[in-house]
């Protein structure tokens, strides 16, 4: 029931968002902002018509008008692979540094670094990484990024890294706090007094108790990654779903783009849950 309501809310929100550009306009006579609600009904009507006719409609890119259905598959795959790789590495790095390797001396150093980085807003980090990539090219001649959509791997891997930065910092901070809290619990003391090794305690006691928090924050992690993906695809000219969203103000492509994003994030959320489940089954006794 709750999930149904949630889906309904998201659905309404997306429709509303896609319609906003046609609702808000500037009244040239009074030089003021006016709301034109008739745009909402028309947008939704056209959208439904297109969908019922079995087509996805068109979108405008530059001066060209193209069919959404021709491009959506490739765009979807690009965005999906960037986001999947990004979120997976977020989870792996977060768990490794936060729990399993947190005893190592080098981790201590990484912790300090991540703490400093997490104070910086993500868009500044994105700009700095771009600067860094350009400087590396200037100094060494090694090409790290490419802005042409045709350049294949070069155009994909850097967005993956950038997408992962902000959610990693977020998740890591969360896990660090939880780890600290959990390690002060009495059952940890009991385990220590029974002479169990730290690794054993980390797997069997700490991880098991932190997992619910991670799952609860997973939606937030995915949504952070999506927020960054929007910016990164826009800045780096990646041929992904955002092409539908930022290139035009029409209702049709924006709605299709946002729904595709929803689908992508749902698939990713589910696959991360699956990975965590496998991990728990494989390594931790029930």
């Amino acid at each position: 029931m709750k999930i149904l309501q949630q889906v309904l809310f998201i659905f309404l929100l997306i429709i509303f968002l896609a319609a906003i550009p046609s609702i808000i306009e500037i009244d040239p006579a009074e030089k003021n902002i006016s709301w034109n609600w008739s745009g909402l009904g028309k947008g939704i009507g056209d959208f439904m018509n297109e969908i019922l006719n079995g087509s996805l409609g068109t979108y405008q890119i530059g001066n060209q008008i193209r069919y959404i259905s021709d491009d959506i598959f490739g765009y979807f795959l690009t965005s999906f692979s960037i986001l999947l790789a990004g979120v997976l590495s977020v989870i792996v790095i977060g768990l490794m540094l936060g729990i399993f390797l947190s005893q190592l001396r080098i981790t201590r150093f990484i912790h300090m670094l991540l703490n400093v980085l997490s104070a910086i807003p993500d868009f500044i980090l994105i700009i700095f990484s771009l600067v860094l990539a350009i400087k590396i090219y200037e100094v060494t001649g090694v090409r790290i990024i490419a802005f042409s959509p045709e350049s294949g791997v070069l155009n994909i891997w850097f967005p993956m890294v950038l997408t992962a930065i902000a959610p990693t910092l977020y998740l890591f901070k969360l896990i660090a706090v939880q780890y600290y809290q959990t390690s002060a619990e009495d059952y940890i003391r009991t385990a220590v007094s029974k002479g169990m090794g730290t690794n054993y305690i980390n797997f069997q006691h700490v991880y098991k108790n932190i997992e619910p928090f991670i799952i609860a924050e997973l939606t937030k992690v995915v949504s952070l990654a999506i927020g960054n993906l929007f910016i990164i695809e826009y800045l780096l000219n990646v041929p992904g779903i955002t092409k539908f969203i930022f290139q035009s103000n029409q209702f049709q492509p924006v709605a299709i783009g946002l729904f595709s994003m929803l689908l992508i994030s749902f698939i990713i959320y589910m696959s991360i849950r699956f990975v965590l489940y496998i991990f728990k089954r494989g390594f931790i006794y029930e």
Binding site: K2, Q6, F9, L17, P21, I24, I26, T219, K220, L224
Partner: peptide, 27 residues
């Protein structure tokens, strides 16, 4: 109430800057 939780979850899914972008882009 369940609908408040559902609304919160739905709301936290969409990045805020995107909502603002759609509001501000036309004007």
């Amino acid at each position: 109430p369940q609908w408040i939780q559902a609304f919160e979850n739905a709301w936290s899914y969409i990045p805020l800057f995107l909502i603002l972008f759609f509001f501000l882009a036309p004007i």
